[in-house]
Design a protein around this nucleic acid. Sequence first.
DNA 1: GCAAATTAATGATTTATTCAAG
DNA 2: CTTGAATAAATCATTAATTTGC
Lengths: 201, 201
Amino acid sequence: MPPAASTRWCPTPEQVMLLEEMYRGGVRTPSAAQIQQITAHLSMYGKIEGKNVFYWFQNHKARDRQKLKKKLLLLHGNYDRTQPPILVYHDHLHHNFHQKHHHDDHQSPLLPPCFHHQPPPFNCSSPTFPPLAQRGHASPEMRSQNEECYYGRIIRHLDDDHHGHDLHDAGFTRRPLKTLELFPIKEKTFRNQGSSSHDLR
Amino acid sequence: MPPAASTRWCPTPEQVMLLEEMYRGGVRTPSAAQIQQITAHLSMYGKIEGKNVFYWFQNHKARDRQKLKKKLLLLHGNYDRTQPPILVYHDHLHHNFHQKHHHDDHQSPLLPPCFHHQPPPFNCSSPTFPPLAQRGHASPEMRSQNEECYYGRIIRHLDDDHHGHDLHDAGFTRRPLKTLELFPIKEKTFRNQGSSSHDLR
DNA sequence: GCAAATTAATGATTTATTCAAG
DNA sequence: CTTGAATAAATCATTAATTTGC
């Protein structure tokens, strides 16, 4: 049992926060030097390597694009062409929009100064991407039959005994305290928490 | 006159107390078997089903996160680094923080022994946890060249110090800010790293 | 005091992301 | 790229607190 050194980076909350802050500040494709800098600073909060930073920005940028693309497709028809493109794709495009007026950059003190105003190169300014957490609300027809396979493992694995709908019997069930004995229920090999012996999901 | 069975579970004070105790003890995402166990024990105090337990932990965890996130955002600046990271993201991340020093675990006698110190299974394990997938890394081809350059540059230049995988050193690395010096680096099998420019699902 | 009216908590569902395997 | 499993985020819905007018 090799300690199997975890193979990937697990950013700490602070790291994520700072990265997001930089991202919001306009950083998109930091140069090698910048990555070094960022890495050095973030290493204060936990293990981290340059590639983690690099990938983080790559991924974040890509997924942002993804989100926007989807959103645009959805709007599709009612997209008002008179409005500014909302955002962009290639890095080149983001820049030079608003600028300079980060309300009052109350950047986290955790963020190295050099990233505070992150001026020209990759600063994109804030009022840009609206997070817009508008929810979907799926169309009813779409959820057809899979009601059953829905919520997690619990419903499926656990609610076996006296499942569903026996109505609420008035008093307590005071069910026989079947005291378990953990186990069976199949093992999963990875992705379990530090579990020692038993840990079945 | 079906009393129209109430529509949702109403935990008894004992149940809530025990659940909270387990939560404080580190339980976050109990496995199916664990849920069974918990459910069986809690049924002593009132009607309860596995899914109630499942949902309880889901909600409690989520609302904890929520609270902390809000708090962090508010503090934003005056975040005391000497304090434990406070929270987390994925379960994996929580671990290794609080622990061991629950003032003096005066666990309720109501709590089955197996949940008292709840050490290994789902507790904040140590630095071990799951993620063991070596992800990513771009597939060299199919990449607009600028990205590729980037990729190459970074990975190869930045990933120097303690490349590969050494395990998660428990604490933070707090590495000395070593500022670079590029390196060769041998990368292994790459998979791909979705972040290029096209990613819609 | 005590309900109807409001608001806060929290149980239950649904949707979105993430991870890693195919 | 696509997908199944897991789980986090968002949000819907009902119950419990609290407030308010009498």
